[in-house]
Amino acid sequence: MGRVVIACYAPRAGREEELHHLAREHVPRLRAEGLVTGREPIISVATDGTVVEVFEWVSEAAIAAAHESAAVRAMWDEFERVSTYVPIGSLTEAARLFSEFAPLPSVSATPPPGHE
């Protein structure tokens, strides 16, 4: 059975565009490893700039397998270079009955620094 998760990434100073780029790549890269379902992720941004992503793992076993995958661990290292992981409860929006977030901005015409 699938497992829906909410992941939150607070950008490091000056690394917002790189984080946005990685967030857009995250699920497709996990999908290439066979770890997530075909359900489209929802990627949004909190008022403080934190990227909020909702996606579905194939199973609990897939989550465990991700921790053993060199490709996934390398991707998580990329995320750690540009952001820090934060719990959803730390976001101001999480205290509201109906939490609202802005959609992740659309892809810019130029790639972020370091991704030319």
Rank of each mutant, 00 (worst) to 15 (best):
residue 70 A to D: 13
residue 68 E to T: 14
residue 67 H to R: 14
residue 62 A to I: 10
residue 72 V to D: 03
residue 83 S to Y: 03
residue 79 F to C: 00
residue 59 S to G: 10
residue 69 S to R: 13
residue 84 T to R: 14
residue 81 R to I: 03
residue 53 E to I: 14
residue 63 I to Q: 14
residue 71 A to E: 14
residue 84 T to D: 11
residue 66 A to M: 10
residue 66 A to P: 00
residue 74 A to I: 05
residue 52 V to H: 07
residue 75 M to Y: 15
residue 69 S to A: 14
residue 68 E to R: 15
residue 75 M to S: 00
residue 85 Y to E: 07
residue 78 E to Q: 15
residue 59 S to R: 03
residue 71 A to L: 09
residue 57 W to H: 02
residue 87 P to H: 10
residue 74 A to P: 09
residue 70 A to I: 06
residue 50 T to P: 08
residue 58 V to E: 04
residue 80 E to V: 00
residue 56 E to H: 08
residue 60 E to L: 13
residue 71 A to T: 13
residue 73 R to S: 03
residue 85 Y to D: 05
residue 64 A to V: 13
residue 86 V to G: 08
residue 66 A to F: 02
residue 84 T to M: 10
residue 75 M to P: 00
residue 49 G to Q: 10
residue 70 A to T: 04
residue 76 W to S: 02
residue 83 S to R: 11
residue 87 P to L: 07
residue 68 E to C: 10
residue 64 A to K: 13
residue 59 S to T: 14
residue 81 R to M: 06
residue 84 T to K: 10
residue 87 P to W: 04
residue 75 M to C: 04
residue 49 G to V: 11
residue 68 E to I: 03
residue 65 A to T: 04
residue 60 E to R: 12
residue 64 A to T: 14
residue 85 Y to N: 05
residue 60 E to F: 13
residue 87 P to C: 08
residue 78 E to N: 05
residue 77 D to Y: 01
residue 56 E to F: 01
residue 58 V to Q: 12
residue 63 I to F: 09
residue 79 F to V: 04
residue 60 E to Q: 12
residue 51 V to F: 03
residue 80 E to T: 02
residue 56 E to S: 13
residue 72 V to Q: 08
residue 62 A to V: 12
residue 59 S to N: 13
residue 51 V to I: 13
residue 57 W to M: 00
residue 58 V to N: 02
residue 83 S to P: 10
residue 53 E to W: 03
residue 62 A to E: 11
residue 55 F to P: 02
residue 75 M to R: 11
residue 65 A to K: 03
residue 73 R to V: 12
residue 49 G to H: 06
residue 64 A to I: 07
residue 61 A to H: 12
residue 56 E to K: 04
residue 59 S to Y: 12
residue 77 D to E: 15
residue 67 H to I: 02
residue 52 V to P: 02
residue 69 S to C: 05
residue 55 F to T: 02
residue 64 A to Q: 13
residue 72 V to N: 05
residue 82 V to C: 03
residue 68 E to L: 15
residue 57 W to Y: 04
residue 67 H to E: 07
residue 84 T to H: 08
residue 69 S to W: 08
residue 60 E to I: 06
residue 72 V to Y: 07
residue 75 M to D: 13
residue 63 I to H: 09
residue 61 A to Y: 07
residue 58 V to D: 01
residue 82 V to F: 05
residue 63 I to D: 06
residue 56 E to T: 07
residue 80 E to C: 06
residue 53 E to S: 14
residue 65 A to S: 09
residue 78 E to G: 02
residue 73 R to D: 01
residue 74 A to C: 06
residue 67 H to T: 09
residue 62 A to D: 11
residue 74 A to T: 09
residue 64 A to C: 05
residue 87 P to K: 08
residue 50 T to S: 14
residue 72 V to M: 08
residue 63 I to L: 11
residue 66 A to W: 04
residue 85 Y to H: 12
residue 79 F to I: 06
residue 78 E to S: 14
residue 68 E to D: 15
residue 81 R to Y: 01
residue 56 E to V: 01
residue 70 A to K: 13
residue 79 F to W: 01
residue 55 F to G: 03
residue 50 T to G: 09
residue 83 S to L: 10
